[in-house]
Nucleic acid binder design. Structure first.
Lengths: 253, 253
DNA sequence: ACTGAAGATAATGTATACATGATTATCGCG
DNA sequence: CGCGATAATCATGTATACATTATCTTCAGT
């Protein structure tokens, strides 16, 4: 196990990745405010990495969509409108629809479909409890993310998978982005049940090689996330469960 | 006009951009072969920039999709199968379809639609000559690229525009990627006419707020590019007109 | 008091030196 | 003669020093 890694900062992971994670956390936590230029020196202090990896991390976060390049140099945190977020979700849904269609049209063996069915069965199990516990919500997030990842892989299209990953990089555009946010809503249970129905339908459609149906249901599935977004933004009670709340520009700003 | 910029390498553009352009050219020209690790020192020599900007350029080219990170460190040129390319085109077509639908559903004023109509009219003018000249093909490429860019903008959705730009970054996935490649084909004239018909239809659909129609026709429009790809790969006569031919892995490799 | 310019300050962009880790070549052994 | 291990070389990842450019402050003039 090598020498004791006491205060030694994990040598196993690169400084660039460390800086990227640290900066992303700061951005999502709102400690760096949208519109303001990100100071490299300040980032050096807070991340512990040197300027070179910090700079690298900034470029990667720009590509990720969290940052925006300033014409005169440097980067600033991007701000997102409600419309931006719902459009991002719809883009992801459209691409996932394409993935589902590819899977259906190109054919998927029973063995390949198995992981997806297992995911679905596990979610069914979760939803059996009648007032859904917070733990169950947490498990749902994991399983739902897995379902979407596996489905995407079934497209067997590297370029498409790549694009979906990039579209899901924004935390609020990710498939599980709003699940926790909806946990506080009274409609939570219903929404989860509807979402799971979508999962069932897309499996069925792929199994029967119904491309158009598979595509349509994944699009509709994303619209559910858009609806959650709207609900969460209106019911401002548990707004803190929203991912990247700090990046959302409200009309009052 | 400043002092004569004799042998002085454009100070106006950053070393990073210079390196990025130079490396991209080398990759597309095939001077760097897929699978082989790109040596930073070699890149430093060929681009004239230092290691830092070269490294920056490599990261950006990776995000662009031309390079792939090697687990042990560094980057290599990515190789693309025919399927990869057609899938990339279909992804772009799907996103452009979404853009057209957004434009149609959300509404576009007559004034905003004007540039699109102008593009279309200019292309009509080009296609009037009966054996289409090489110059006309070249003009077509420019106008077609403009048409797609303007159409994308009409979606008025920053996240979508961003994704489309990223999907079009790969040279063979770009809207005008295969126009020149098809110039050598006997079917060239017909294909251009059909493509232009698609342009006309999408304008009409947006004007009449027919979202589904606008979306469908843009998808079909991309399929035309896929067809061109297939044709060009079969008729190996003018294969050199294919963009990034060096990156396409054939069955013989 | 306000506008403009000029200087000072601080930031980014670039270059290079250093260290760690990977890759290859060579040598020894089976 | 082939395979494995060790050592040397080379490449990448990181840190830091330097220069250029943008931004802010201050001072002068109207």
């Amino acid at each position: 196990m090598k020498a004791a890694p006491e205060r030694e900062v994990d040598r196993s992971v690169s400084q660039t990745v460390k800086a990227q994670l640290a900066l992303r956390d700061q951005i999502l936590a709102g400690s760096l405010r949208p519109g303001e230029r990100i100071s490299e020196l300040q980032a050096v202090e807070t991340t512990g990495a040197s300027r070179t990896p910090v700079r690298m991390a900034l470029v990667r976060l720009e590509e990720e969509g969290l940052l925006e390049a300033i014409p005169s140099g440097g980067f600033m945190v991007k701000a997102f409108s409600e419309r931006d977020i719902s459009d991002s979700i719809e883009v992801r849904g459209t691409l996932e629809g394409l993935a589902a269609r590819f899977a259906a049209e190109r054919g998927v063996s029973a063995r390949e479909l198995e992981p997806l069915k297992e995911c679905s069965a596990a979610i069914d199990e979760l939803l059996r409890q009648v007032p859904i516990s917070v733990d169950a919500f947490s498990s749902y997030v994991t399983l739902n993310a897995r379902f979407h990842a596996v489905l995407t892989e079934l497209s067997r299209s590297a370029p498409l998978i790549r694009q979906i990953d990039r579209a899901s990089a924004l935390p609020f555009a990710s498939p599980s982005g709003f699940v926790m946010a909806q946990s506080a809503l009274p409609e939570a249970q219903q929404i989860l049940i509807i979402g799971q129905e979508h999962h069932r339908v897309v499996i069925d459609a792929i199994e029967n090689r119904e491309g158009a149906r598979a595509e349509a249901i994944m699009r509709e599935h994303a619209r559910l996330a858009v609806r959650n977004l709207r609900l969460a933004l209106r019911n401002r009670t548990h707004l803190d469960l929203l991912p990247a709340l700090a990046l959302i520009k409200t009309a009052t700003d």
